[in-house]
Write a protein that binds this DNA or RNA. Sequence first.
DNA 1: TGCTGTTTTGCAGACATTGCAATATTACAC
DNA 2: GTGTAATATTGCAATGTCTGCAAAACAGCA
Lengths: 200, 200
Amino acid sequence: MSTVADDRLAEPGLEPGLRERKKQQTRSAIHEAALQLIDERGPEATTVDQICQAADVSSRTFFNYFPSKAAALLQLPETPVTPEARERFLAASGGLVWALCDVVGGISEIGPDRIRLKKLLSRHPELVSPASSMMLELRTQFVALAAERASSQEQAELAVALVMAAFGCTIHDEGRDAPLAARLRNTVEQLHGAFDEQLV
Amino acid sequence: MSTVADDRLAEPGLEPGLRERKKQQTRSAIHEAALQLIDERGPEATTVDQICQAADVSSRTFFNYFPSKAAALLQLPETPVTPEARERFLAASGGLVWALCDVVGGISEIGPDRIRLKKLLSRHPELVSPASSMMLELRTQFVALAAERASSQEQAELAVALVMAAFGCTIHDEGRDAPLAARLRNTVEQLHGAFDEQLV
DNA sequence: TGCTGTTTTGCAGACATTGCAATATTACAC
DNA sequence: GTGTAATATTGCAATGTCTGCAAAACAGCA
């Protein structure tokens, strides 16, 4: 969904051309600037123009790369269900929910500044809502994927709901630098355990 | 949180004065107009100004009553955990999650146009994200309430996550005019059942 | 009727976001 | 190298949401 057309040199194992390299560079510059400024001043107090200035791009370019301020900060993939992820999902031996944890967890395996983001989120709770909002937009993709292994649409929805609930928890639980997928699985187990105690 | 100062005549059993009546009237007019117009034209195609014109108020007044377009449409209470709801919650005999379903479900017992809203949501999926977003803002209130009965903060978070997940499902399940609380409980049970099948 | 507190409104302005057209830059063929 | 097509960056104008502020309209009450 990136507005900037994908360079064909991007896909194969070929070394990316100058063009592609510059694009990654720009994208990264914007993201870095957003991360830095929002960290210092908070999300509301940081304007897109300030980020652009720091990243040395025009505000128009900013919106060529990201659809919103929050998107620039979080950098969620527009299409989390890559063909490879799908392969792994379909081939996974465990249960549906289990496999989903891996796919959903995969969105943040990029790992470099995920920790910074985590801290940002706990320092600025106003960001939780936009972040979850963006996750929600991916929901339908996850449901579609889940449906490929579920025995019914209902099941697919339930499984995704479960994992999204776990995601909601991991967003709130402070600390923990374990990979997201692992945390998700852990939380799902806790949710399972919850049924044996509070409910009746 | 309404910007419009609360009239002291609003609380007790006294008949509200003209002032209070007008306020309710205005609020309702705005909500109705939003409901109607957004239903016809869709959320993006409907501007605040159009709603104001239909409700016959200035746009400034609109924002005195509601913090956003979505808020005017959904009319979620700013404080869903009323003293009475809290009483009932603390006194409820069932499990924590169970009791939470009632509280969370309570936010929409106003019932008149909840059905219209439901249809709106399925007709315009773009609304799901804002709606969930607004629910999220209430999350901390629910967690705080849950913590009063939970044996740990963790438990409170898990319980709320479960109910919010159920809420996410009920938003998506078409049809059904049963009260929200009942649907929530139902979905929670389904989630419970899910553990005995897909997981391992 | 006149005083007081509340609500409504208009206005100006900040900020996010989009469409469009001009400009600059890269890739590639000759 | 030069030229051309493709693509990226930018500027500009416009729309729409939302806020602060001060003036005007209005209800409650003496």
